[in-house]
Computed example of a mutant assay.
Amino acid sequence: MNRPLILAPSLLASDFARLGEETRAADAAGGDWMHLDVMDGHFVPNITFGPDLVKAIRTFSKKPFDVHLMIAPADPYLEAFAKAGADVITVHAEAGPHVHRSLQTIRALGKKAGIAINPGTPAQAVEPLLGMVDLVLLMTVNPGFGGQSFIRDVCDKIRTVRQMIGGADIDLEVDGGITAETAPLAVNAGANVLVAGSAFFKGGPNAYAANGEAIRNAAAMARGELV
């Protein structure tokens, strides 16, 4: 049985000058999760925000906060993000040598644990970790910046990871270049959580609901849930 289709607007693409209001607007427009890309200028070539900002916008939405740590090392910051209001905390397999410890720590903090890999990392990197995670995140762009184009070759990796997951209680998330045109490719390959940034936030708050609906409907049609 297909896992529920989840749309996670990426606040990286929102207006940072009014991030609280953007979070509220993304929630009201139908976002299921709020996706927060945390970048450190070291693991990826950009800097975004930290735990204090997550805490500051936590009151603007009751939806799950999906915090994606593109930072190295991640371990020193896990507790801070958990206390700030993260519901899911995802770390990269490439970000450090002790990823098992990171995942154990996230679970011990009472949060859902996710493992992410970049487009150039083989799917096999997540296989030994599947017993320790609630989510696998496959990057469909090279991380660091919003607005990039979907890397279609990653669809083969999505299929491989979906087979690895089997019937386990694990969501399969994709992040990067998700639009109404690429969402069907991702869900046909086996993804059920779609992170959408530029395609969701384009046009300003009055367009968010229609943008999200277009992505969701395209994915639902590909899953055979909408005619």
Rank of each mutant, 00 (worst) to 15 (best):
K157T: 09
R159G: 03
A210P: 12
A199W: 03
Q163H: 06
A196G: 15
V154I: 13
Q148C: 07
N211A: 03
G177A: 07
M164A: 15
N206W: 01
C155R: 04
N188Y: 00
E173D: 12
F201Q: 01
K157L: 06
Q148A: 06
I165R: 12
K202I: 01
I151D: 11
A220S: 12
A218P: 03
A220E: 10
I178Q: 10
P184Y: 04
F145W: 10
A220H: 08
F200V: 13
N192W: 04
S198K: 06
T160K: 13
E213R: 15
F145V: 00
G197Q: 07
G224T: 07
I151K: 14
R223T: 01
T160V: 09
N206K: 15
R162W: 04
N188F: 00
S149L: 06
A183P: 07
A210R: 09
I158F: 07
I158W: 05
P184K: 04
D175K: 07
T160G: 02
F200D: 13
A222M: 07
A180I: 08
D169W: 05
G203Q: 04
A168K: 15
Q163L: 12
Y208I: 07
N211G: 08
G190H: 09
A196C: 15
A196Q: 11
D156F: 10
T179S: 13
A180R: 11
P184E: 03
D156E: 13
A209S: 13
L194N: 12
I215G: 06
G177I: 04
A209F: 00
S198E: 04
T182H: 12
D153Y: 13
